[in-house]
Design a protein around this nucleic acid. Structure first.
Lengths: 333, 333
DNA sequence: TTGTAGGCGTTATCAC
DNA sequence: GTGATAACGCCTACAA
């Protein structure tokens, strides 16, 4: 492997000049040409570790997500890549495996790796431990969820109005018995979505019934118990708003098992994962989050912070969701 | 940020001793204790760049996949993480975005990042450019596909027998008019799956009909044209073997649009993505690849090569697939 | 077992 | 503009 020393020798200049050339400083054109040629000939690539040792920059950012197999997460990553790859940033991806302990672990792992910045989609909104990272001055941008106890830049969705639009649509189709399967009460997005549900009912003067409001863990099997509970009610709802992907999927599964046709016997509106849900018959109404854009914005904010621009901190950016309306919600009118 | 120098001062030993302590060499217990305490107190973390500069190791491996939003890819990554994270390896993930040019680009990007090893799932089986990486002695392990022109370690699936088992099952259910929608002829896995199809027909003495063999690109919209073409045949097949995920998905979509019930009017057997396909009614028969295991094995082989164990090169490991049999293939008997 | 010192490949600060 | 040179933090002979 050749170094700037070799380049300098071949080009007959000092290593200082080569370094300056590489970093885009002014150089006599004659030297510039010779250096360029030498670099080409030696196939020289500057050593990122040596550079990092001097500059304290790794040109690497860390991305910590709850789970790498989650489509929403990977779409966010795609957005991040879109911005950061052209700038030659490397992206170290860590998955917390839906596990708070691992999240803390990976977070401190990223710190030890000396990444220049971190984008985190927290597992939950509570229990976030990032003092050391903050102290070291490594910028963090949150994605999708805020956390308690810290002020960070963040890119999140307008969950309140996302949920509101869904419930409003259900109401407008003539439903009055509308249930919701929300997420765990400690999760930020879950709280917001529930707020949207309540606000819509309220705005349309529909009585809120306790038994129509259920909570379910945000796990792979979430929602199964809840939907069964709803269907078993003496006075079951005519429409159900399922507030995340697994809950929606599992609810559909239960409906099928019970031979209840979605959009006929019972109406359903879900969240996320539009592509998949549009394959069903009928397609599923869903609130869609602009996942890729979330990644793009998060990367842009992080870039700004990494270049030491601390203006408008904390910059909390809220993106709008989109409602896809299909026959999975029956018109009662 | 504290350095071993600070630790040395605080512990009243030389930096050499501290370094030796960190790297697990023998040390007088008394010193060992004091160093440990000093490290704790200063919250010392050794600087990976300084270390890397000396040792020429980054403790980082690169993973290059066709597309980060592909579930198969992320499951492979999950397997890789399972092995490499406990060993403190960082994983830099690059997506080629299904694009050969980007694959080459990212590959050389990884080289410039001085990763210790690379796991690649190639976009196609042809056109792979890795001379520089090979020359630098950075080990590469292929996943899912082999490439022309290079000998690399690899972890792949037994596509021939995977496809064979699917077609055999279809035959055993009494079908004789069996079509296949294969992938592009230059893709390794596509070739193998087609071979499996042909071999099964052959073994069961079923005539191979040209018009039942179609090729489709391995892209997001793959298969749409092909399945339509098959359904429009004068003598259409009674069963179709769709050889990857998008082709299967899109075929199902077309069936729905045409009001053909899967498992009744037409039988279908697909590939990959079992979880999703099991949600449909009827669930879809599929050949399942052990994606997570692929990642695990690839990481293990890479680890071996990175520790300079060159035995049994090239180590090409073939994993078996599993067939999930459902009513999406109608029994004609 | 320990301390000392040289060097890994860069960048940055001097003089010139 | 350029060349010489001192860091950056760590590892590793080498000598003690």
């Amino acid at each position: 492997m050749s170094t700037i020393k070799d380049v300098a020798k071949l080009a007959n200049v000092s290593i200082g000049t080569v370094s300056r050339f590489i970093n885009g400083y002014k150089i006599k054109q004659e030297n510039s040409l010779r250096i360029e040629e030498a670099i080409e000939q030696l196939n020289f690539k500057s050593n990122p570790m040596a550079r990092g040792l001097r500059t304290n920059k790794t040109l690497t950012i860390g991305v910590l997500i709850p789970r790498i197999t989650d489509v929403f997460c990977t779409q966010v990553i795609e957005g991040i890549e879109e911005i950061l790859n052209p700038l030659n940033y490397g992206i170290v991806i860590c998955s917390a495996n839906d596990n708070l302990e691992q999240q803390t672990e990976k977070l401190s792992y990223l710190r030890e790796k000396f990444v220049d910045g971190i984008i985190v989609m927290p597992v939950t909104s509570s229990e976030f431990e990032a003092d050391e990272i903050v102290n070291r001055g490594i910028p963090i941008v949150l994605v999708d969820r805020l956390v308690k106890g810290y002020e960070f830049d963040a890119v999140i969705c307008d969950n309140v109005n996302g949920a509101y639009s869904a419930v409003e649509m259900i109401i407008n189709k003539g439903h009055r018995k509308i249930a919701v399967i929300g997420g765990p009460e400690e999760i930020f997005t879950a709280q917001e979505r529930l707020t949207g549900y309540l606000r819509a009912l309220n705005d349309y003067n529909i009585e809120v019934k306790e038994e129509y409001i259920l909570h379910s863990p945000y796990t792979k099997n979430g929602g199964i118990q809840a939907i069964n509970q709803l269907l078993d009610l003496e006075d079951p709802p005519t429409a159900i708003f399922t507030t995340n992907y697994p809950i929606t999927v599992n609810s559909m599964k239960v409906l099928m098992e019970r031979n209840l046709v979605m959009g006929e016997a019972i109406s359903l509106c879900g969240y996320d994962q539009t592509e998949l849900f549009q394959m069903f018959n009928p397609p599923v109404s869903v609130v869609v989050q602009p996942s890729r854009e979330i990644g793009i914005h998060a990367a842009e904010i992080l870039l700004k912070r990494m270049s030491d621009d601390q203006s408008r901190f904390p910059h909390i950016q809220r993106l709008k969701t989109q409602l896809i309306e299909t026959e999975s919600v029956k018109s009662m009118i």
